[in-house]
Amino acid sequence: MPITKSQLHKVMHERKSVRKYDASFKIPQEQLEELLVEATSAPSSSNLQPWRFLVIQDDAVKKELRTIANNQEQVETASAIIAVLGDTKMYENAEAVYTKNFELGYINETTKDFMINNSYKLYAQLPQETLTNIVTFDAGLISMQIMLLAKEMGYDTVPMGGFSKEAFAKHFDLADHIVPVILIAIGKAAAPAYNSSRIELNNIAKFI
């Protein structure tokens, strides 16, 4: 049967990376909070939800951030910058995560205890590089949800990996276990984004 084009399909194809924003437009904080709550439905490794967010709305702070982010204009003109961070000590939240799942009736007590113990046993002994890779992967999953949800709410976004992560961590005094992953500018477009082509499927996929 042919695939019916849904609202999700529409949002996916209307979402473009916008770099020109109306600097006078401000998204209410309540809407930013709602956006992040909805985005946390994203999957994550062992459901440990390692994403953390620093939402920068203050104009002076955005101006400071612009120097860290390769002088990208949208850092200063977007309504907000959502910095998506990863917590490499996410396994320390295992007890809270799985206890809540148990209380909500999603898992039984045996599964709860197993998952708590297994999370500590597995993740606590991993090298920092491996933990960073895990939280970076999970941050990517939630970042895409943030951008799609933002578009559905009528806002535009652009993801930015072009910034000094070391300078960001130092400037915002991040703990050693909090890893900057991506910056997402969000706001009201002042100019349309460029369209972009995609590589043909037969050049990127093989079915066996």
Rank of each mutant, 00 (worst) to 15 (best):
I178M: 02
I82Y: 02
T40W: 03
L201I: 15
N133Q: 13
S44P: 02
H171K: 15
N195S: 13
K121Q: 13
I134N: 00
L122F: 11
D59R: 13
A191G: 01
G140Y: 01
P159C: 06
N118D: 15
E14D: 09
T111S: 08
A150N: 04
Q49N: 07
W51E: 11
Q49F: 03
L54R: 09
F53H: 04
S46C: 11
P28I: 12
L32H: 00
S196P: 02
S44V: 01
A150R: 05
T157E: 00
E33K: 13
V55T: 06
I3K: 15
L122D: 05
M153K: 08
N118W: 11
Q29C: 07
M115R: 08
P192F: 04
E76K: 10
V179S: 01
A169I: 09
D59L: 08
S17M: 07
K165V: 06
P50I: 09
V61G: 03
A94I: 05
V181L: 05
D87G: 04
E166C: 05
E34A: 15
L104R: 15
K151P: 06
M144N: 08
P50W: 08
G154E: 05
F207R: 12
Q7G: 01
K151C: 08
A205L: 14
Q74H: 10
F163L: 02
K20L: 10
N71P: 02
M147T: 07
K112M: 15
A78R: 03
E33F: 10
D113Q: 13
I208C: 06
S164N: 11
E152F: 00
N202T: 12
H9T: 14
E103K: 10
E129R: 09
S197G: 10
Y98S: 04
E64G: 02
V75N: 08
K5T: 12
G162D: 07
K63R: 12
G154T: 04
R66W: 00
K20Y: 13
S44Q: 01
S45L: 09
K10N: 12
H9P: 02
P50T: 10
V84F: 03
P159E: 03
Y91K: 02
E14Y: 01
I27K: 01
S197H: 11
D138G: 06
F168G: 04
M144P: 03
G140T: 03
S41H: 14
Y91C: 01
K165A: 07
S45R: 00
V135A: 03
D138P: 01
Q128D: 15
D173K: 13
S17N: 12
P127S: 03
I184Y: 02
N195L: 12
R198Q: 11
L131P: 00
R19F: 01
N47V: 08
A190S: 15
I134Y: 02
D113N: 15
A169P: 05
S143V: 05
K26N: 14
E109K: 15
N70P: 00
I186Y: 04
M160I: 14
D59P: 01
L174N: 08
N71Q: 15
Q57D: 09
M153T: 00
A205W: 06
V158E: 03
L104M: 13
V181I: 15
L183T: 07
L32T: 04
N108M: 01
E166R: 07
V179M: 08
P127I: 03
L65Q: 07
Q74M: 13
N93T: 09
K151L: 06
I182S: 02
H13L: 15
E76H: 08
K20D: 14
T157R: 00
A205S: 11
L104G: 13
S196I: 11
K100L: 14
H13K: 12
R198E: 09
T4Q: 13
